[in-house]
């Protein structure tokens, strides 16, 4: 087992474990912090796949901006483990069983296929900033400009919804 495989399985273990901790922890602040750990391990996966631009953007946008927004809202509402809503253990059991059955079916389905495709790791120039920038500003310039309109409408929508009246 070489160092790349070891890093892959370590990052996968951290990602899955932190995701499970996120949905099981009582306090919403702890959930937010565990989700940040998940995002950092996914960024580690991107670095392992040599997608450097996406690794940096994932940390800046998700772990930096979006999760700070979540943390801000959680602390604004002063949520803690005592304000956790009433639990229904039967519904929780049914939810876990449904999710586990879905995972079992999907995993057994993908283990049945026999493609000999290998993911290229640590090499390749597809994820470098230069290549992605050339692709984005040559082939995808129209969606890039439309996304600015999307941001403007989201900003106006958030202001209008959050306005006190």
């Amino acid at each position: 087992m070489n160092i790349t495989t070891l890093a892959f399985f370590l990052l996968s273990f951290i990602a899955v474990g932190s995701a499970i901790m996120m949905i099981t922890s009582k306090s919403p602040v702890h959930s937010v912090l565990w989700l940040i750990v998940v995002f950092f391990s996914i960024s580690g996966h991107y670095i392992l796949l040599n997608a450097q631009f996406l690794a940096v953007v994932n940390i800046i946008v998700y772990a930096g901006a979006i999760m700070v927004l979540f943390l801000f809202v959680v602390m604004l509402m002063n949520l803690n483990a005592e304000t956790e809503p009433i639990k229904n253990y039967r519904l929780q059991l049914i939810g876990v069983l449904a999710g586990g059955a879905l995972l079992l079916v999907l995993i057994s389905a993908i283990m049945r296929i026999d493609v000999e495709q290998v993911v290229q790791m640590k090499t390749g120039d597809a994820g470098l900033i230069k290549v992605l920038g050339m692709t984005l500003f040559k082939n995808y310039i129209l969606p890039f400009e439309i996304s600015s309109v999307l941001f403007l409408s989201a900003m106006i929508g958030a202001v209008i919804i959050g306005k006190k009246d």
């Binding site: 790349t4 495989t5 892959f8 996968s12 990602a15 899955v16 995701a19 499970i20 996120m22 949905i23 998940v38 519904l91 929780q92 049914i94 939810g95 876990v96 449904a98 999710g99 586990g100 879905l102 995972l103 999907l106 995993i107 993908i110 283990m111 296929i113 493609v115 495709q117 290998v118 993911v119 790791m121």
Partner: peptide, 24 residues
């Protein structure tokens, strides 16, 4: 690394998300 391993990892994370939506 085989592509199946990556699909399995993504499916696991996705299913944890689904279970979270159903349970919480």
């Amino acid at each position: 690394m085989d592509i199946q391993v990556y699909i399995a990892l993504s499916l696991t994370l996705f299913t944890i998300g689904i279970v979270g939506v159903l349970v919480r």
